[in-house]
């Protein structure tokens, strides 16, 4: 499921930006380009962090960016960027962010399986370091595929 909603065309490695707002914009633009969201959804993701805080840096070096379905999601989808240099979001312990994922959910159910697989991915050993080291989108997508397939087999 994760592999279906995250296409290699929505992955960019080595993104160079100045701040967390630009990280969110960049990741959001990948969803916009594929017409998965309305442009307003990007602003909603930024506002969500302003309102709720940088807890979206859910794990060491990883930010998960999203807003609500009614903020302008057309279709379930995800994008991923790796950041060079890493960017501070203001989180008390998980900064700086090296990998940012953005997604748009259409309801409370359809993305559940993808979130479960994303959890599996993010709990694999040295995942941030490994994802950050991949030099292009295809290699990064390939890596994610391998991690999820090996977990499925229970290795």
């Amino acid at each position: 499921m994760l592999l279906e909603i995250l296409a290699p065309t929505r992955i960019i490695t080595g993104v160079e930006v100045e701040n967390w707002q630009e990280v969110t914009k960049k990741a959001g633009e990948l969803l916009l380009k594929d017409e998965l969201i309305e442009e307003e959804y990007i602003t909603a993701m930024i506002n969500s962090i302003k309102e709720n805080g940088p807890y979206v840096v859910l794990a060491q070096g990883i930010a998960i960016l999203h807003a609500r379905p009614e903020d302008g999601v057309k279709e379930l989808g995800m994008s991923l960027i790796t950041l060079d240099p890493p960017i501070e979001f203001g989180h008390q312990s998980n900064d700086p962010v090296e990998v940012a994922l953005a997604f748009g959910a259409v309801d409370e159910e359809k993305h559940v399986e993808a979130m479960s697989e994303l959890t599996t991915l993010l709990m694999s050993d040295n995942v941030v370091e490994k994802m950050h080291a991949k030099e292009d989108a295809d290699k990064l997508y390939q890596y994610i595929t391998e991690v999820l397939n090996s977990k499925e087999k229970g290795e």
Partner: peptide, 11 residues
Amino acid sequence: CGHGLGSSMML
């Protein structure tokens, strides 16, 4: 979490 959709689901 803020939306009850992503972060809280993974938690």
